[in-house]
Design a protein around this nucleic acid. Sequence first.
DNA 1: TAAGTGATACGC
DNA 2: CGTATCACTTAC
Length: 185
Amino acid sequence: MTPLPRAFFEDDPVPVARALLGATLVVSQPAGILRARIVETEAYRGKEDLACHAAKGRTARTDPMFGPPGHAYVYLIYGMYELLNVVTWPEGRPAAVLIRAVEPPSTLALRTDGPGKLTRALGIGRALNRQDLCAVDSPLSLWPGESVPDAHLGVGPRIGVDYAGEWATRPWRFWDARSKWVSRR
DNA sequence: TAAGTGATACGC
DNA sequence: CGTATCACTTAC
């Protein structure tokens, strides 16, 4: 078994966001290893997409999105929450997939039904910004899982990006309709 | 429904 | 420099 290969992330962020549903996020902490199944994602697609941070251009914050695919883009929002993204599209072409919700490891009572909650629960922070997610020995990696069939796929507009005008209506949010861990709102 | 929280980006 | 804004969450 190997992590999802770099080629998986070189694609358009929209199909990658769809395909990431069901994949396993693996967090290797000093304390131990946590595995969580991804159940909700959102695609942020290039400089034209006004909801995408890359619309601001290449800055210190957005730089990871311009880098090689299969790496983490983690940033602080509202002074309190760290959000985890996976960089997609080839180097030089900015795009990312936001991980919005995961199913927590069944043995642990964790709240992972929101992008800020899951990073807090799993101990993911800015220290992991730019981390390669395709390496076997990475502290953070993505592995194949049981995918979500079309019959159980939820699709809708992205959350919290009303400022982006028409771009806010794009159906670039995906979720597993069977999961109780999808974020509310 | 609104406040909390601090890095970021941009204007002066 | 100052300050508006923000891919969220939780408690009124």
